[in-house]
């Protein structure tokens, strides 16, 4: 069972990252974090950007851990899923860079 969960850990990490970003965005907009924190960036966007970068880093750490063992096919699938999770977190977070925070 542990081996199976390890195999899909990259996608579990994506699910967590996605939920965190979505929840944080909803919370930020509800609490009105729309003041300029840094010139050109609202508070909500700064918080989201920092969180997103931390989540990407966490995916990286997970991937390094997965890469340490590639003996069985399940472990190799796990590495591929680790890459998918990393890519998915990057792509699903892209709107943070370009879109207005709370409109």
């Amino acid at each position: 069972m542990t081996a199976l969960i390890k195999m899909v850990s990259g996608l579990i990490a994506w699910a967590v990252s996605f939920s965190v970003l979505y929840a944080l965005h909803g919370l930020g907009c509800a609490l009105g974090w729309t003041e300029q924190a840094v010139p050109g960036l609202t508070q909500a966007r700064v918080v989201l950007l920092v969180t997103w970068i931390l989540l990407i880093a966490a995916h990286g750490v997970l991937l390094v851990w997965l890469l340490r063992s590639c003996a069985t096919q399940m472990q190799r699938i796990g590495v591929a899923i680790g890459w998918i999770g990393l890519g998915a977190t990057i792509v699903t977070g892209l709107p943070i860079l370009a879109i207005s925070s709370c409109v």
Partner: peptide, 28 residues
């Protein structure tokens, strides 16, 4: 198959694109 199984849980708001949710969340 595993990617489909997980990613498909991150799509549900695309049935709600016209409910007035902020565009950044729609973007996710």
């Amino acid at each position: 198959v595993m990617a489909l199984a997980f990613l498909s849980f991150g799509l549900w708001v695309h049935h709600m694109f016209t409910t007035g949710i902020p565009h950044m969340a729609l973007g996710f």
